[in-house]
């Protein structure tokens, strides 16, 4: 099959990919751009390890056809920290609050939380849990993860 050309914004940079039309966004991110932050867990939109933010909304990149990102803006965990390497408050909170154990779900958790906080800077615990319901973690039992998001909310509030 002839490759297609897709141009979009990836972590703030204008990029173009030449990939087979059947590739998912996840496959393109990992194998064409070599961004391995987004992970493939289930590959069918159940586990959320592949979560990225497209135009402000969290989506499962494993079932997102790459052709559909044309002209859109994609943010992966690699684009979460500042360009000088300063970690995002969510990243700091996850580290300081033991929101990470094996780490496989972490980038997806961070991206779901990022989309939530951009839309709703002071979410309730329920709203946090709803936003993370599509991100499975088999280690933590979720408590530290939810607390990490709450901590990030506090850090961002103090800063502003």
């Amino acid at each position: 099959m002839e490759k297609i050309t897709v141009s979009f914004i990836l972590n703030g940079d204008e990029v173009t990919a030449e990939v087979p039309p059947s590739w998912s966004l996840l496959k393109t991110l990992r194998e064409y751009f070599e961004l391995t932050g987004p992970k493939e867990g289930c590959g069918v939109g159940e586990c959320g390890a592949c979560t990225v933010v497209i135009d402000g909304k969290a989506v499962n990149s494993c079932i997102y056809p790459v052709a559909e990102v044309e002209g859109k803006s994609v943010l992966t965990v690699e684009g979460l920290a500042g360009t000088d390497g300063t970690l995002h408050p969510l990243q700091r909170a996850f580290i300081e609050n033991n929101g990470v154990q094996c780490g496989f779900c972490t980038s997806g958790m961070l991206m779901s939380a990022k989309a939530l906080l951009d839309e709703n800077p002071e979410p309730t615990e329920d709203e946090i849990r709803t936003s993370l319901a599509g991100n499975l973690c088999r280690c933590t039992g979720y408590v530290q993860i939810v607390e990490s998001v709450q901590k990030a909310v506090k850090m961002m509030k103090e800063k502003s």
């Binding site: 979560t51 969290a58 499962n60 997102y64 939530l116 709803t130 599509g134 991100n135």
Partner: peptide, 8 residues
């Protein structure tokens, strides 16, 4: 599904 699913 999840927020990610409902978004698309």
């Amino acid at each position: 599904g999840s927020v990610q699913i409902r978004n698309v």
